[in-house]
Design a protein around this nucleic acid. Sequence first.
DNA 1: CCAGATTTCTTTAAGTTTCAAGCAATTGGC
DNA 2: GCCAATTGCTTGAAACTTAAAGAAATCTGG
Lengths: 166, 166
Amino acid sequence: MTLDSETKAVELPEHHGDELRLWLRLLTCTTLIEGEVRSRLRERFDVTLPRFDLMAQLDKVPEGMTLSDVSKRMMVSNGNVTGLVERLVESGHLDRRTSDVDRRVQVIRLTKAGRAEFRKMAAEHELWIADIFEDLTPKDVRELMRLLAKTKTSAQKSARARGDRG
Amino acid sequence: MTLDSETKAVELPEHHGDELRLWLRLLTCTTLIEGEVRSRLRERFDVTLPRFDLMAQLDKVPEGMTLSDVSKRMMVSNGNVTGLVERLVESGHLDRRTSDVDRRVQVIRLTKAGRAEFRKMAAEHELWIADIFEDLTPKDVRELMRLLAKTKTSAQKSARARGDRG
DNA sequence: CCAGATTTCTTTAAGTTTCAAGCAATTGGC
DNA sequence: GCCAATTGCTTGAAACTTAAAGAAATCTGG
């Protein structure tokens, strides 16, 4: 933040409207896309977005993850994951077992059927996303990636500075 | 989308991973910021994000809005708004009355107390957002605004093309 | 005027989400 | 070995959310 000599008086209320508008636009974009993906998942596969997201996390790690890992990666609360996993185990998509080395820990994995179903959904999902972002040039995509990376870092810094633990 | 002569064979599976990564990054940023704002609203004002968002919509229109208007603006379902409004009327933040010209319609407004409380929260909220985006230069902000506008248009087009109605 | 379609809102069921409190297992210090 | 702190997960209450179905009011085309 550059201060050109004395233009910035101490009491001048700063102008933060631009950041606020940026945040609202970011939120609008995400809500819009999320709603679209949610609709398509429901009508095409009769699956909810949280279930899909959880399965997506597990697909990346064949050997499985603990509930805490999932919770951190998905940025949702522990209790939330407990319920989600319960329903996905119930429906046969997930396999759950207690860790041998630490009996507090639950390790969950995709079942064979769960993985097959996820892969099928993921393939289409990727096409939906490509379609949703179709108007963006490869350069736009790169530039957005860069700016969002910067945004993420900035937000994390701000969260850490506050204490992170409300 | 430019086709340079014959480089693009019909059967070539296209590469869509970049768009997917972009979507995940967008989602991460939003989730991160939303969680941060949610925490601060709770610890500072003991208010939830949906309540704050609803009040923000109403603050922009002193004469009030119908529930449908709110629903469209917030991009949430009708039933959702019904419950939210109910609780905010209960707590004295909102005023609700049936339209004179159309008895199906409910018009809601901020009460004096509701408006005062919202303004207080909004002022701090704006500072939080500025802090969260602090690392971004004014140019970054402009560029992000531009690219997100393009993203929004693209997503809306994609949604419309699908039918928008499940 | 009137029957059918549409719009606005509410209700219902199922699921998602958070926070806070609590339990069980493990770890670390002594 | 033992006690305190920590960690991993579950539970419970309240709120939020959606989709779908329903009720009430309005609109529309005979």
